[in-house]
Design a protein around this nucleic acid. Structure first.
Lengths: 350, 350
DNA sequence: ACTTAGCACTCTCGTGCTGAGAGTGCTAAT
DNA sequence: ATTAGCACTCTCAGCACGAGAGTGCTAAGT
């Protein structure tokens, strides 16, 4: 445990360092915050903080820099979680209302807004259901022996694929197949379709298999598909004097499997999780912090969002922003895509 | 016009520079290519090439670097457009066969394959029709007063949007509306729908307007939506010693309106177009070259693809690769999404 | 008339040096 | 417990210097 004064000092060091990106010295901090102590006293305190591992020294005659442990302590105990100012909230809410059209577009907008608000990179995954259920399927002919298979899944997800038939086929026949399958598979999951005993013609099985595959892919997907925005915000920061650090980060972020880097799956079901520096599993992320939050309804449709930036990050603001935007997204999901299919309507307390 | 020997020399300078990224000196080139002349002779020739603006001098005692004009001459007259080696073609074709599922995904794969093949950044736009026609629409209820509107357009494009109704509405009613609108608007364009005199209820107009808006957006879109891949390939190149050049390029490429930077619209309807350095309209692109090609059927469904990289680019290889991949994409479009709707079937020579 | 050897010249770049500046840690005095 | 004072350490910008690469020119050779 830290003495009050040391805790206070750590807090000042962090806020100064987060602003200036330069190691902070004893004199600077006394001047900057009008402390009622001399630099020498501060130096003594700093020495103790360093002994305990909260701050460190790039080299002998440099100022102090917060360590991962220092940030962690700050986030847990020191930082006062201020709510976002009303006008910031208003701005964000306003940007959200430009959303529209398709789900993908909407998620991407969320990532962009978040990235801009926290001046770091942001990742937002597509929302995902526990297990998707077929709501409706449609077959539209586009060529003699090719047709477009469109699936509407629960929670307003739409999937499509071109389907090739071994032989030419008429639209009437396509419609008949679609009707039959709609009846047979309404509200079923991929697994249920796979186990189905329904009486189907060979052509119908051809389609049904495609349906099952698409749905399986959709279920596997979810967290793996994510929108990334604001990489530039991060690369702009002064820690990237050398361009190979930039390349490293790009490497990490550009490959599509963000999931491996950011533990979307392991976060608590509610609230914001912070991973600082070496707390991240992946080596490549040891110089970065990640602020993650789920959004949506934990039992229904849900996704996750994260902010990625250098450990030198404005944690308080970032956490508030992530929390606020996650809240907004949950609201919107509830409004537009809320769980309310036939089964739910008929048996609300199932 | 250049003498044979000078042209030959220019060609060597370019190929050496493209490989090494370092200004090439007279002696280097003699040694490297075993020329039957002394460095002094080469120096004389180089001086002439420089006078004529084909190469230039970073500073007095540096080697020569090709200028935009030099590259241009090389591309027009010197370069021998080799076909791609069979095994490279095979690799690319193979990677393409992992494509599947949705159009978006497929285009993105194309961008990734292209980027990898030419070791530069690649942009591929979504294919676009002259004017989209409605093939089928579908209304699926998702909440009491919200439903999902799914449009299938010609050429297998699918659009979706959540539609809010002023009042709760039953699925049967939705289906009825959809049926009626399908009849009324089958095969029509957005403009035709706008002018339509069909007898519709107020609710039906509500839906019809949404349909028209979505289709208009789709028509406006097309070239504006594009997938970008391989930025990292470019940033890795030695020209980016300083990180602010990297930031500049990122700025240029990350903003979504690639269309403004790359003249997809202005390229010739067939074949590959090359824009070298300052030939690009945008200032930000003056140090980069762009190799562009349309794909698809110029009269039907078509898109465009481009490679972006430093002017120091392996033009011959890049052009062949772009041409080959554009060809592949055209083939696939023809196979899967080829223009062949009812009207075409019934009146092939319209 | 073309080619080439020779040479002086120019410019860059890496290296090592230096002094200023920032910051520390310790000691002794308050 | 605090602080003034001071020696010490380390970085960094600036500068000089020499090596290296490459040029352009001239004069001689073919």
């Amino acid at each position: 445990m830290l003495t009050d004064r040391r805790a206070q000092l750590l807090s000042l060091i962090i806020s100064e360092y987060v602003d200036s990106a330069m190691p902070v010295g004893s004199e600077t901090i006394v001047r900057r915050f009008d402390l009622p102590f001399s630099p020498a006293t501060i130096r003594n305190e700093m020495a103790r903080l360093e002994e305990d591992g909260f701050i460190s020294h790039p080299h002998t005659s440099a100022g102090r820099v917060p360590s991962d442990k220092g940030y962690r302590y700050y986030v847990e105990a020191l930082m006062q979680p201020r709510d976002l100012p009303a006008e910031v909230k208003e701005t964000i809410r306003h940007q959200f209302h430009q959303a529209g059209r398709e789900e993908d577009e909407w998620i991407q907008l969320a990532a962009a807004v978040l990235a801009r608000a926290v001046e770091n990179a942001a990742v937002v995954t597509l929302p995902r259901t526990a297990e998707s259920r077929l709501k409706r399927l449609e077959l539209v002919g586009i060529q003699d022996n090719a047709s477009l298979l469109v699936l509407v899944l629960q929670q307003a997800r739409v999937k499509q694929q071109v389907l090739i038939f071994p032989e030419p086929i008429e639209q009437e026949q396509l419609t008949a197949i679609a009707n039959h399958l709609n009846e047979a598979f309404r509200s079923q999951t991929a697994r249920e379709i796979g186990r189905s005993q329904a009486q189907l013609t060979q052509l119908e099985w051809h389609v049904a298999n495609a349906v099952r595959e698409i749905m399986e892919a959709a279920d596997r997907g979810g967290y793996d598909e994510a929108y990334l925005e604001g990489v530039r915000n991060v690369l702009q920061k002064p820690e990237f004097g050398t361009s190979d650090k930039m390349l490293n980060l790009l490497d990490v972020l550009e490959q599509r499997n963000l999931t491996r880097l950011i533990p979307f799956r392991e976060i608590s079901a509610e609230g914001v999780t912070v991973m600082i520096g070496a707390e991240n599993d992946q080596d490549a992320m040891h110089e970065y912090s990640v602020v993650i939050s789920p959004y949506g309804n934990p039992n229904g449709i849900s996704g996750a969002m994260a902010v990625v930036g250098p450990t030198r990050m404005h944690y308080s603001r970032t956490i508030s922003t992530v929390r606020y935007i996650a809240g907004l997204m949950s609201e919107m999901l509830e409004t537009y895509y809320g769980e309310q299919d036939e089964r739910a309507r008929r048996a609300p307390r199932e």
